[in-house]
Amino acid sequence: MESDNKYSNLQSSPQGQKPSDIESTTPRTDLPALRVRDLSFYYGKTKVLDGVSMDILEQQITAIIGPSGCGKSTFIKAINRINELETKVQVKGTIEFFGQNLYHPRVNINHLRRLIGMVFQKPNPFPSSIYDNVAYGVRIFDRHPRSQLDEIVESALKSAALWDEVKDKLKKSALGLSGGQQQRLCIARALAVQPKILLMDEPCSALDPITTMKIEELIQTFSQKLTVVIVTHNMQQASRVSDYTAFFSTDESRIGHLVEFGHTTEIFTKATNSRTQDYIQGRFG
């Protein structure tokens, strides 16, 4: 009920404030987990996203769908600012994390990335043991006694439904695991640092259908404690796992933008925009 209220003022801009005015440096947990306002994104000088505004609510699963090249991947990479590492980027508009502008110059970017974790398209475990993979993120922030670290690793692996498969070979190389196991290890690794938001960039695109099912089930268990944003090109997946769905598309100028955003059930049954309907019914893209 509460979340529905928050959703209702989504399309209108926040009262009395222009998006760029918000420069709060204290978190406001009464606000949506992510509030995106008029976000435009450039790689170098090339514009790839134009004017995206949406609210992503706490402890909900939000799916981002759209044809390839529509900027959906760019969008979630902008949320934990990981695309800055690869190329020069330029951002206009704001993304707020519980009321704090992500692109504020004084943001502790390492802390930000810890609070907003990410799972990538291809499993990318470090070439070290299963245990060290999960413990890596925990170790870089704090020294923990061994027993406490063991507990964190175990609970992270359990949350990723991997514990039973690997508990006897924690010291073995993570590269010996199957693709699906590696991806769940990456999920466990991301969960171990207790993020508030988990971004998933097509996490199942490199996996077979059975493993995909497993990971989908897993994602659904997260919603009690975690906000999830998942990019997917698989519409069935979006309809199965998510509470909200955002449909991105490109216009003639090849710049991505948000076409429609709402409850998943609504988007999939009675989308208001004809392009959304076309895409969902498989008529293009």
Partner: peptide
């Protein structure tokens, strides 16, 4: 992808 994974866990 290794660098990105480390950064996304908060590694500086």
């Amino acid at each position: 992808s290794m660098r990105l994974a480390s950064a996304s866990l908060g590694g500086n």
